[in-house]
Write a protein that binds this DNA or RNA. Structure first.
Length: 897
RNA sequence: GCCGGGAUGGCGGAAUCGGUAGACGCAGCGGAUUCAAAAUCCGCCGCUGGUAACAGUGUGGGGGUUCGAGUCCCCCUCCCGGCACCA
C-alpha cells in the first residue's frame, strides 16, 4: 500500500469508480424511504466561489450520510441560467449572453465534478433551455386564464441617458451605475402574479414547516404582514362631486386623535390639488425622483406639503387637512393614511416638523384622570431641541419651548389603553372602541373591519433580453392575445448582444413581427421577459420530471417531492422561498402536483464574506476591484482603514465585508485550493471552519491543518493494510484498550448527535480526536482488535465529508468493497459506561478542585468527601457551610458564608 | 428606517437542559530529527501577578435574576443578511 497520501490519484480513482458504477443515478424505489436532498442551484457566473463550496459540501455530506443510513437519495444539480450578469458581460465583452452562459456552465460543472459531489448529473437542467422555460410560459398562460396573472402599471427605475430600465442593483445613490444620471421613477405596464390571493395560506402553512429555522418563518410571517384593522373613508367634496378618501389603520381606537391625513405623491387627490398649485406640483415632482427601493424611501428625510384641501372626519364632522407626504407609498393599501401624531412615531415627528396638533386619546396605564391639557404644538418652537418633560397626571402637557422627545412621550402615551378625549368612546378599551367605531362607520357606509397584508403582488415583467419570453402577442384589433399552447415555447433568439440601451429584442424584427393567432393579421410579440425568480420557483420539481417531454410534472414528481432537505443561503429567506411556496400551491391547485409545501426541511447556510473594494468612476458610476488587486492599509490599532489598488497605487474605497459575488468581484475561486491540496482537503476545511448556519469571513489559514490531518490519517491507515479482514475479539480487553474503546465510542456518540443538528465542524473535531487517540494508544497486537474497529468507525464517520480518502482506505484496509454500502456506525452502549467519574468542586460557585468518585456513589457520601477536601477546608475559616449543591456526575458546589 | 441574525484567546471556533469557559484546529514559542532546510514528531500557549504552588481576572458594553450566567431578563454599541428589478 502506498505510504504517501496522494490526493489527486485517490480522488480520480474514486470518482471514476462512482461514474462507472453510476452510483449516484437515482431511480424510484418504493422499498426504501426516499431522501430528496437539494442545494440551491447556482447562477453560472463563471467560476465557483467558496460560498458554493460550502453550500454544496453541506448538501453532499447530508446526501451521503442518508444514503449510508439506507435512504434512496436524489441529489440533482442545475443552473439558474437567465439573468442580468450575462447582459453585463455582453456589454463588456460583446459576447452573446447565451454563449457566455453555456461556457460558464461547462467550466463550473467541471469544478463541481472535481469536488466529488454525489450528484445525479443525468437530471441536470439549465433554465435558459427552451424545454425548461416552455413550462414557465405554459403555467403563466394557465394563471392568466384563472386570473392569477394580470396586467397593470408598475413603477421602475428609469435612466434618462441610457433610455433604459435599471435594476435596483444598478442604482447607486440615486444615480445610474454607468451614466451617473439621476434616476427617475417611471410607470409602465407589466404583468403581475396574484401571490396575495395566497397570502392567508402562505402565512398559515408556515406552521406546517417545523423543519424550517424559526428565524426564516418569522421573517416570512413579517413579510406577509397580516394586519387586522379598519378600512374607512373621509368624505369630501371636490369639483362639486362627493368623494371619499380611503385609508387603512390598525389603530382605529386613536381615530379621534387624527390631526391630518397624508397621501402619496401619486395619489389622485394630490395630483388634483397640484393642478392649481405650482409649488405643490413641484414638490410632487421631487417625490417622484429617486429610486423605487424601499430602503431608500424609508431612510429619506420625511417631508410633506399641505394640499390646501380638507376632508371630513367621519365621526366628528370636523375638517381634516390633507398633506402629501413622501413616506406614504401608493403601492401599499389605498396610498393614504390617517395621521395621529400622539400615538405614532412617524406622525409625531411629522407633526412637530410642520407644527400640526398632537392630541393624545389613549389614557396612559395607571392614570385615572385625563392630562390637564391637550398639547397644542402650534405653541411649541419645534426646531429647538431640549429635554421633554416627564408627564404626571397633574402636569400641563403643553410646553411652549420644548421639542418633544418620542422616546419619553411614548413611554407615557403609545401603549394600548383606555380612550379619553374621544367623545362617546371615552372609557372604552381597544376591542370595545373597535366594535363601536366599526358600527358607526358601517351605519354611514364609510367602511368597516378589514384584514390587510403587507405582501404585494409579484411583478414579473422585465424589460430585459436574457430571460424567459412572456408568451403574449399584441394585436391592434384583438388586444393582448395569449400564445396558443401548441406554439410554445416562444423561443428566445440566442445570438443577441445587449449594449446597455434597452432590450435588443425590440430591434429584432424576426422576433417582434408576428401574426395574431386570433385574426391572423400582423401583430407584435411581447418583448418583456420574466423575472428570473420565476425560473427558480419550480426547478426543484422539474429535476424529478426531467425526462418527461409532454408534461410539466408527473408521478415521479410526486414520488420525490417534497424536497426532504433544502440547503441554501440565508439571503433567500424571503423572496425565493416565498415565491417557490406560492408557485407550488398554484401547481397544486391546477392538479399538477399533490404537495402543499415544496421544502419539508430547510438549512440556511451563513454567507461567506470577503472584503469589498470599489471606486467611483468619472461619470459617477461605480467600479469594483478584487481583493487580490488591492493592498490593505491598517490604522494604528491594526484595523483595516483603507486600501490601495496595486496597479496604480491610488486609494480605493473599502466598503467592509460582504457576500462573495461576481458583481462585487470579491469571490474566491476554490480551484487553486483543489489543485494544491485536493478536493477532500477543500471539503474538510470548509466544513471545519464554522457551523453551516453561521456567517463566515473568508480566510484560508487553517487549510494546512486540514490537509495535515488527512495526511496523518493516510499514514496511520497505511500501517494497517488488511486489518478489516482480521477477526475482532472484544471479549477480553486490557485496561488501556478498554479506555481507547471508551474514548472512540463516546466521541462517536457526540459526533452522531452533532450530525443530527448539522454541526459538521464538531464532527470533524470528533474525527480528529479519534485519530489523536489511536495514535497515542500504541500499535501493539493487544490493541489491534480495537484499532480495527476504531478505524472502521472513523472512516465511515468521515466519509460523507471526505469521501475519496475514506473510499480508498476502506478498500485498502480490507473492509467491504464499497464504503457507501456500509452501515452507519452506532456507539456500543457497553463501551460508554465508566466505573469512575471525576466531579468538580466549587466553593460559592468558584472552581477549587475535583474528586474522583465511583459511578454508583451516593449523594451523602459525595458531599462528605467533597467537604473534607483540603481545597474546601481552606475556604471554611470563619464561615459556616450554608448548603451543598450536587449535580450528579458533574459538580459539587459548597455554599459558605 | 423596518424585519431577521451575530459578537467567546493573536485567528477560526467548542461548551446539548443555567453547572469545569477556551474542546478541535490555525498561528506563535521551545525542543527532537537533519550537514541544512522542508516534512514529521514531542512540549508550552486567555490576560495580570508569581520561580512555582497559587491568586486575581476574563465570553462586545452597562444593569438584573441565581448557590452558580457565554447560556435567562432589561438597556446600549458595532457587524452581517433581507427590504420586492443582484441572484
Amino acid at each position: 500500500m502506498q505510504p504517501q497520501y496522494l490526493p489527486n490519484e485517490i480522488e480520480q480513482r474514486a470518482q471514476q469508480h462512482w461514474e462507472s458504477q453510476r452510483t449516484f443515478t437515482a431511480v424510484v424505489d418504493p422499498s426504501r424511504p426516499k431522501y430528496y436532498c437539494l442545494s440551491m442551484f447556482p447562477y453560472p457566473s463563471g467560476k465557483l466561489h467558496m460560498g458554493h463550496v460550502r453550500n454544496y459540501t453541506i448538501g453532499d455530506v447530508l446526501s451521503r450520510y442518508h444514503r449510508m443510513r439506507g435512504y434512496n437519495v436524489l441529489q440533482p444539480m442545475g443552473w439558474d441560467a437567465f439573468g442580468l450578469p450575462a447582459e453585463n458581460a455582453a456589454i463588456q465583452n460583446k459576447v452573446p449572453p447565451a454563449q457566455w452562459t453555456y461556457d460558464n456552465i461547462a467550466y463550473m460543472k467541471k469544478q463541481l465534478q472535481s469536488l466529488g459531489f454525489a450528484i445525479d448529473w443525468s437530471r441536470e437542467l439549465a433554465t435558459c433551455q427552451p424545454d425548461y422555460y416552455k413550462w414557465n410560459q405554459w403555467l403563466f398562460l394557465r394563471m392568466l386564464e384563472k386570473g392569477i396573472a394580470y396586467k397593470k402599471t408598475q413603477v421602475v427605475n428609469w435612466d434618462p441617458v441610457d433610455q433604459t430600465v435599471l435594476a435596483n442593483e444598478q442604482v447607486i445613490d440615486g444615480r445610474g451605475w454607468r451614466t451617473g444620471a439621476i434616476v427617475e421613477k417611471r410607470e409602465i405596464p407589466g404583468y403581475y402574479l396574484g401571490i396575495t390571493q395566497y397570502a392567508e395560506e402562505l402565512l398559515a402553512d408556515l406552521d406546517k414547516l417545523p423543519g424550517w429555522p424559526e428565524r426564516v418563518r418569522t421573517m416570512q410571517a413579517n413579510w406577509i404582514g397580516k394586519s387586522v384593522g379598519m378600512r374607512f373613508a373621509f368624505p369630501y367634496e371636490l369639483d362639486g362631486k362627493p368623494e371619499k378618501l380611503w385609508v387603512f389603520t390598525t389603530r382605529i381606537d386613536t381615530v379621534m386623535g387624527v390631526s391630518y391625513c397624508a397621501v402619496a405623491a401619486e395619489h389622485p387627490l394630490a395630483e388634483r390639488a397640484a393642478r392649481d398649485n405650482p409649488e405643490l406640483a413641484a414638490f410632487i415632482e421631487k417625490c417622484k425622483r429617486g429610486s423605487v427601493m424601499e430602503a431608500d424611501l424609508a431612510t429619506m428625510e420625511k417631508e410633506g406639503m399641505d394640499t390646501g384641501l380638507t376632508v371630513t372626519h367621519p365621526l366628528t364632522g370636523e375638517a381634516v387637512p390633507v398633506w402629501v407626504a413622501n413616506y406614504v407609498l401608493m403601492s401599499y393599501g389605498d396610498g393614504a393614511v390617517m395621521a395621529v401624531p400622539a400615538h405614532d412615531e412617524r406622525d409625531f415627528a411629522f407633526a412637530q416638523k410642520y407644527t400640526l396638533p398632537i392630541k393624545p386619546v389613549i389614557l396612559p396605564a395607571g392614570w385615572n384622570e385625563a392630562p390637564a391639557a391637550v398639547i397644542d404644538a402650534n405653541h411649541a418652537a419645534p426646531h429647538e431641541i431640549g429635554e421633554a418633560p416627564i408627564f404626571t397626571p397633574a402636569m400641563q402637557i403643553a410646553d411652549g419651548n420644548t421639542l418633544l422627545d418620542w422616546q419619553r412621550w411614548s413611554d407615557v402615551f403609545a401603549q394600548y389603553g383606555v380612550l379619553f378625549n374621544s367623545g362617546r368612546y371615552d372609557g372604552m378599551n381597544f376591542e370595545q372602541a373597535f366594535d363601536a367605531i366599526a358600527a358607526d362607520l358601517g351605519a354611514q357606509n364609510l367602511g368597516g373591519p378589514k384584514t390587510q397584508f403587507r405582501l404585494r403582488d409579484w411583478g414579473v415583467s422585465r424589460q430585459r433580453y436574457w430571460g424567459c419570453p412572456i408568451p403574449i402577442i399584441h394585436c391592434d384589433s384583438c388586444g393582448d392575445v395569449p400564445v396558443p399552447d401548441d406554439q410554445l415555447p416562444v423561443v428566445l433568439p440566442e445570438d443577441c448582444v445587449p449594449d446597455g440601451s434597452g432590450n435588443p429584442l425590440n430591434k429584432r424584427a424576426d422576433f417582434v413581427n408576428w401574426t395574431c393567432p386570433k385574426c391572423g393579421r400582423p401583430a407584435r410579440r411581447e418583448t418583456d421577459t420574466m423575472d428570473t425568480f420565476v425560473d427558480s420557483s419550480w426547478y426543484y420539481a422539474r429535476y424529478a420530471s426531467k425526462f418527461n417531454t409532454t408534461a410539466m410534472a408527473d408521478a415521479e414528481t410526486n414520488y420525490w417531492m417534497p424536497v426532504d432537505q433544502y440547503i441554501g443561503g440565508i439571503e433567500h429567506a424571503i423572496l425565493h422561498l416565498l415565491y417557490s411556496r406560492f408557485w407550488s400551491k398554484v401547481m397544486r391547485d391546477m392538479g399538477l402536483v399533490d404537495y402543499d409545501e415544496p421544502f419539508a426541511n430547510l438549512l440556511t447556510q451563513g454567507m461567506v464574506l470577503n472584503h469589498i473594494f470599489s471606486r467611483r468612476t468619472d461619470k459617477g458610476g461605480i467600479e469594483y476591484f478584487a481583493p487580490e488587486e488591492v493592498e490593505l492599509v491598517h490604522d494604528a490599532a491594526g484595523k483595516v482603514c483603507g486600501a490601495k489598488l496595486l496597479a496604480d497605487g491610488q486609494p480605493v474605497d473599502f466598503q467592509g465585508m460582504g457576500t462573495m459575488s461576481k458583481s462585487k468581484k470579491n469571490g474566491v475561486d476554490p480551484q487553486a485550493l483543489i489543485e494544491q491540496y485536493g478536493a477532500d482537503t477543500a471539503r474538510l476545511f470548509m466544513m471545519f471552519a464554522a457551523p453551516p448556519e453561521q456567517t463566515l469571513e473568508w480566510s484560508d489559514s487553517g487549510v494546512e491543518g486540514a490537509h495535515r490531518f488527512l495526511k496523518r490519517l493516510w499514514t496511520f491507515g497505511s500501517e494497517f493494510e488488511g486489518i478489516g479482514k482480521a477477526p475482532v475479539d472484544l471479549a477480553k480487553l486490557a485496561a488501556d484498550a478498554k479506555k481507547l474503546r471508551h474514548e472512540i465510542h463516546t466521541t462517536l456518540k457526540q459526533a452522531n448527535y452533532d450530525l443530527g443538528r448539522f454541526q459538521f465542524n464538531t464532527v470533524v473535531s470528533a474525527a480528529m480526536k479519534m485519530l489523536n487517540a489511536l495514535e497515542k494508544a500504541g500499535k501493539e497486537p493487544a490493541n489491534r482488535a480495537v484499532i480495527g474497529e476504531s478505524l472502521s468507525i472513523l472512516l465511515r464517520l468521515l466519509s460523507p465529508i471526505t469521501p475519496h480518502i475514506c473510499h480508498a482506505l476502506w478498500s485498502e484496509l480490507g473492509y467491504d468493497a464499497d464504503i457507501l454500502a456500509a452501515s452507519w456506525p452506532e456507539p456500543d452502549a457497553a463501551a460508554l459506561v465508566q466505573d469512575e467519574i471525576e466531579m468538580v468542586i466549587q466553593v460559592n460557585g468558584k472552581l477549587r478542585g475535583s474528586i474522583t468518585v465511583a459511578r454508583d456513589m451516593g449523594r451523602a457520601t459525595i458531599e462528605k468527601l467533597a467537604v473534607e477536601e483540603p481545597c474546601v477546608q481552606k475556604h471554611l475559616e470563619g464561615v459556616g457551610i450554608k448548603k451543598v449543591i450536587v449535580v450528579p456526575g458533574k459538580l459539587i458546589n459548597v455554599v459558605v458564608g
